[in-house]
Simulated scan of single mutants.
Amino acid sequence: MPWSSLLEWWNLIFALPFGVGLLLGAGFALTGLIDVGGDAGGDDAHDAGDADHDAADSDHHDSVLKDILHWFGVGTGIPLTLLLPALMMAWGFAGLTVNHLLEPLLKIPLLYFPISAVAAVGAMILTGRFASFLARKLGIFDETPAPTRQDLIGCSGYAVFTITETEGVANIRSKTGDIHRIACRVQPGHPPIPAGTQLIVVGYNHDSGDFFVEAHPFAIEPAATQQQELRENQQTQIGGQTH
């Protein structure tokens, strides 16, 4: 492929992102903006997850968009400073390659450009999925999504402070085994739940932005170690605040 042909529109649309992606990747690597530490990846994933969960409550279409972006590796814990250049280069390289292969056969750019574009999108998806798979296998990034509000309903935990009809705080163990500190209250007409009482999450109050909890029907007296953990939790916050 002659260098001059890269300026033709059917090649430029692939060549330009490839060049920009190459420069971005080199720039991020040289300046140290690419952070492959597990903490950074995990925090990004959880922060993004919280934002996505809030958006999903207001608009179902955001959930569809999130699923689409996930196919390209977005939201899997991989920093965008690493993922974006890789996706841009995958788009450019695949598109230019298919253009070069089909040009002698189909001659007319309008015939082979759509095929090249589809191939380029496929290359981006493969790049995103492979990067996510590799990072997960190597343990570089944390791809565990933050739980949604719905995920915490039915989970159990302990009251950190006394929970009343107006306020309360509890530590809840999610289905993945993580501890999350939540703002909660009992439903109107229910008695307060003393600190240290085992409880279960029964619903979410969209008006106040906190959870409804009840004393666990099969509650057992907390063991000494659990009592100690409760006292420590009152001094330090365990896990993230779930919104």
Rank of each mutant, 00 (worst) to 15 (best):
M1A: 10
P2S: 15
F18T: 06
G25R: 00
T31E: 07
D35E: 09
D35L: 08
G37Q: 09
A40F: 14
D44N: 04
D47V: 10
H53M: 07
D54I: 15
H60T: 13
S63A: 13
I68A: 06
H70S: 11
L84M: 07
W91L: 04
F93A: 13
F93Q: 08
T97Y: 01
T97G: 04
P104K: 00
L105V: 02
K107Y: 01
L110C: 02
L110D: 04
L110K: 00
L111Y: 01
L111K: 01
I115A: 04
S116F: 01
A117C: 15
A117W: 09
V121H: 03
A135D: 01
A135R: 01
I140L: 11
D142H: 06
E143I: 02
T144G: 06
T148K: 11
Q150R: 14
G154D: 15
C155Y: 08
C155T: 15
S156K: 05
Y158K: 03
V160H: 10
E167K: 09
G177Y: 05
H180L: 14
R181I: 14
Q187P: 02
P188R: 10
P191G: 05
I193C: 14
G196K: 13
V201G: 13
Y204I: 12
N205I: 03
N205D: 11
H206N: 13
D210R: 09
F212G: 05
F218I: 02
E221T: 06
P222K: 07
A223M: 10
T225C: 08
Q227T: 02
Q234T: 05
I238S: 09
Q241T: 07
